[in-house]
Deep mutational scan, measured.
Amino acid sequence: KAVLCADHGEKLQLFCQEDGKVICWLCERSQEHRGHHTFLVE
């Protein structure tokens, strides 16, 4: 069962290295995470 983003309802499948947390693809494109290094997690 996928864990969903509290903000967007999308699957949490990216790890943001700068923030040390898992985010969704919409979070990654938001101003908050712009320019951060993210990695796909399974």
Rank of each mutant, 00 (worst) to 15 (best):
V3Q: 05
L4T: 10
W25C: 12
C24L: 00
H33G: 01
K21N: 11
R29I: 06
C5Q: 00
V3L: 03
E28R: 09
K21Q: 04
V41L: 11
H36N: 02
W25A: 14
C5S: 01
L4G: 07
W25F: 12
F39G: 13
H8R: 01
A6T: 06
C27F: 00
E10S: 04
G20Q: 10
R29W: 02
R29D: 05
Q31G: 09
D7M: 13
D7R: 10
K21H: 08
Q17V: 04
W25S: 13
Q17W: 04
R34F: 13
E28K: 10
H8L: 00
I23M: 08
Q17I: 15
E18L: 00
V22A: 10
L26P: 07
A6Q: 09
L40M: 15
S30T: 08
E10D: 10
K21Y: 11
E18V: 06
L26H: 09
C27K: 00
R34K: 09
D7I: 11
H33R: 04
G9C: 06
C24I: 01
Q31W: 02
K1N: 05
L12R: 12
F15G: 09
L40Q: 15
K11I: 10
C16P: 03
R34V: 12
E10A: 07
K21P: 01
L14C: 07
E18G: 03
L12T: 09
G20S: 04
K11S: 14
L26D: 10
D19Q: 01
K21D: 05
R34A: 12
A6I: 04
L4I: 13
F15Q: 13
L14R: 14
R29L: 07
C5K: 01
E18S: 05
L14F: 10
F15S: 06
F39S: 15
H8S: 00
V22Q: 10
F39C: 03
C16W: 01
V22R: 13
H8C: 02
S30E: 08
G35Q: 06
L4N: 15
V22E: 08
Q31P: 07
C5Y: 02
E42T: 15
D19E: 14
A6L: 06
K11A: 12
E28Y: 04
Q17T: 09
S30C: 09
I23H: 06
D7T: 15
W25M: 14
Q31A: 08
Q17N: 06
F39D: 06
V22L: 14
Q13D: 09
L40H: 10
I23S: 02
F15N: 03
Q13I: 09
C27V: 00
C5E: 02
K1L: 03
E42Y: 03
V3G: 14
L26E: 13
R29Y: 06
C27R: 02
K21A: 09
R29C: 03
H8W: 00
L14K: 13
C16D: 06
K21E: 12
K11M: 11
E42D: 13
G35V: 03
C24R: 00
K1G: 07
Q13Y: 06
K1Y: 11
G9R: 10
K11D: 14
R34Y: 14
S30V: 03
Q13V: 08
R34L: 13
F39K: 15
Q31R: 07
L40E: 12
S30K: 04
I23W: 02
R29H: 13
S30R: 07
L4P: 02
L14G: 09
L26V: 10
C27N: 02
G20P: 04
V3K: 12
C24G: 00
V3S: 12
H37C: 07
C24P: 02
Q17E: 13
K1S: 08
L26Q: 15
